[in-house]
Amino acid sequence: MEALLKVTDTLRSIRETKLSGMRPASEFFDYQRLSRPADMNQATSRISYNTRYFSGNYLLIVALLAIYAVIMNYLLLFSLAFLVGGFALINKFAPEATQVGDHTITQKHLYAGLFVIGIPMFLWAGPFGTFFSIVFCSALAIFVHASLLEPGVESDYAAVQDSV
């Protein structure tokens, strides 16, 4: 129960800090401001500005791509559910040792069995390929969007405000 409270507190703090800065979809998908950058310097400055300005939107894109990638990899989804569910079930239903015939099964034995089965299954599911596909797709989407979208008028005022 305590771990669940920590997770909800962490999610709440992420929502308050990162996702509170999300820009409206009309501004994020403003196709009238799309243009090809003239040179690499302009593309770099656009990427620098837009990644800060749309950081909440980009974080949401990364999260959605991660959820999609895990859902589409059924074996990875099953192995994660097996490990997390097994851990939760062991904590809930087996806090004390159980006698089975001549053997005493402790929580440590159950965890060992869970990990002996779950970790190879997890590694066989290809988490590294999924991770790198999420990183590549996210980076591609973010860099393309950030380099093609012209900064708004507020970017000129941000430069003036930073110098003051």
Rank of each mutant, 00 (worst) to 15 (best):
L5D: 12
K6H: 11
T8N: 03
D9F: 02
D9L: 02
D9N: 03
T10P: 03
R12F: 03
S13F: 00
S13Y: 00
S13M: 01
T17E: 07
T17P: 02
K18H: 13
K18N: 13
L19M: 02
G21Y: 01
P24H: 06
A25L: 09
E27S: 03
F29E: 02
Y31G: 05
Y31E: 08
L34D: 00
P37N: 00
N41H: 05
I47A: 11
S48P: 07
Y49W: 05
N50S: 00
F54E: 01
S55E: 14
S55Y: 08
G56L: 01
N57F: 00
Y58W: 04
L59R: 13
L59H: 10
A63E: 09
A63M: 11
L64G: 11
L65W: 07
A66T: 14
I67Y: 11
V70Y: 05
V70H: 07
N73M: 11
N73F: 02
Y74H: 12
L75D: 13
L75R: 15
L77C: 07
L80P: 06
L83A: 05
L83E: 08
G85E: 07
F87Y: 15
F87P: 15
A88P: 11
L89N: 12
K92L: 14
F93K: 08
F93D: 07
T98C: 12
T98N: 13
V100L: 08
V100R: 09
V100T: 06
D102M: 14
T104F: 08
T104P: 04
T106H: 05
T106I: 05
K108W: 11
H109N: 14
L110R: 07
Y111R: 07
F115I: 03
V116Q: 06
I117T: 05
I117G: 03
G118K: 03
I119M: 10
L123I: 09
P127N: 09
P127V: 02
F128H: 07
G129V: 06
F131H: 12
F132N: 15
F132R: 12
I134Q: 12
F136L: 13
C137K: 15
C137Y: 15
A139F: 10
A139C: 08
L140M: 12
L140Q: 13
A141Q: 12
F143W: 12
